Simulated assay, not measured.
Amino acid sequence: MKTKQYIVVGSVVVLMGILLSLDIKGLIKQEDAQEGQEQTSSNGASTSSFSKEGVIAVAKQNVSASLLTDIQKVEESLKKSSGDGALALEEELAKKWDDVNQPAAAAFSYEAIAEKKPSYKSWLLAGDRFTEGYQNFPDTNAIQGLTQKAIDAYTKALEFNADGLEAQTGLGVAYVSGTNNPMQGIQMLLKVVEVDPKNLSANMNLGLFSMKSGQFGKAVERFKTVIEVSKSPEAYFYLATSYENMGMKTAAIEAYEASKKLAGDPGLSSFIDRKIKELNN
């Protein structure tokens, strides 16, 4: 996540991982749920099993030997440094983790940078990386810990700017995704869209949470708002999924086709072609 808040927006590879893992027919349906209310997102992980060292060890398993050597050289130099030198090395290490698409590992460097140079921007960046981390990290035992790290970082960002919509949105998503108090997060996101009705990230997440609670009509409105701001294959795909669950086959097919066109990915195209064939039968 170089220039964005991470939730569902990313490369085609990330997009495929999200879309193909979505259990369209298995979405939770609750007749009396409030907007965005979802099942508690506890994944059984315990923060006692979470550590910086453990997260970085897992990240290193996904890095080629040559690139890992470069990372380890910076790590060794960092151990011997202090002051401005250490700050510069943390910034270099963060960039290297970004370059190999390991946001959970990068997040710890951004957190160290924010501790040395605290500001709204630095803590927001740390929070965004921890968010990428908990949304994509392969070891589910670390997700709860990464989510709490995101919450802590966004909370510190808001100490510098209580009106910061980016941090409010990130905090709201983290509360919904990884705590026993999801409605607190939903309320945060609803406040964001009160101030900024076209806020892309807040609307996208409210739409996703509405889908998970089976409120597909509300999800449709959220995704339409997102598409008004920025047409993306993700938004069209989730819009199509919502229409499909409402029995609106023609609208679903149109939205699936739009997603397919924007993504321009053969794997996604094949998946959508199968969905459209099912809907036409």
Rank of each mutant, 00 (worst) to 15 (best):
T3V: 12
Q34G: 15
Y175F: 13
S259E: 07
Y6A: 13
T140H: 04
E75G: 04
M211R: 13
A105W: 00
F271I: 10
E194C: 10
F237I: 05
L239Y: 14
D32S: 08
L165D: 02
L146R: 00
M248G: 10
G172Y: 03
K116C: 05
A162I: 02
M188F: 07
V58P: 11
E76N: 10
E53N: 04
Q168I: 07
N199I: 08
S119R: 11
R274H: 15
I143E: 00
G133R: 00
F216Y: 14
G26P: 01
G44V: 01
D99V: 04
F216P: 10
L22E: 13
D152G: 06
Q37H: 13
G83K: 05
A251Q: 15
A157L: 05
T179Y: 07
S42A: 10
L262H: 03
K275T: 09
D139E: 05
Q72N: 11
F130K: 04
E132I: 04
K96M: 10
G17K: 02
Q168Y: 04
G264T: 00
N43G: 06
G214V: 05
G85M: 06
T169K: 13
K60G: 05
D128G: 11
S177D: 13
A142S: 05
S66A: 15
N181R: 13
Q135G: 08
T169Y: 08
N161Y: 11
R274E: 06
L22V: 15
K191I: 01
G170A: 12
G185T: 03
F216S: 11
G178A: 04
S242I: 00
I151F: 12
N62H: 05
N205F: 09
K52H: 00
S119D: 07
Q135N: 12
L279F: 05
Y256C: 04
S259D: 07
D70T: 11
P103S: 01
G267F: 12
E159L: 14
M1V: 08
R129W: 03
K4P: 14
I276A: 08
K29A: 12
L146G: 04
E31W: 09
F108L: 01
A258Y: 06
A65N: 10
T140R: 03
Y134C: 09
Q39K: 09
F223P: 00
A263K: 03
M16A: 07
N141K: 04
A258H: 08
D70P: 08
G264A: 05
E159K: 13
Q184C: 09
Y243M: 04
A45P: 04
Q39R: 10
E90W: 00
G10R: 03
G10M: 05
L171R: 07
L78P: 03
T147N: 07
E31T: 11
A255D: 03
S232H: 13
W123M: 06
K116A: 12
R222C: 09
R222I: 03
E90P: 02
A104D: 08
N205H: 12
V100F: 10
V192Y: 03
I143S: 02
V192N: 01
A112V: 00
R274P: 10
A65S: 11
S269L: 08
Q37M: 15
K249M: 14
K277H: 12
T40Q: 12
V100C: 15
S109E: 06
K60W: 01
K96N: 09
S242Y: 01
A167D: 01
E111D: 09
F237N: 03
A57T: 02
K25S: 15
F237R: 01
D84S: 12
A153W: 01
E38W: 12
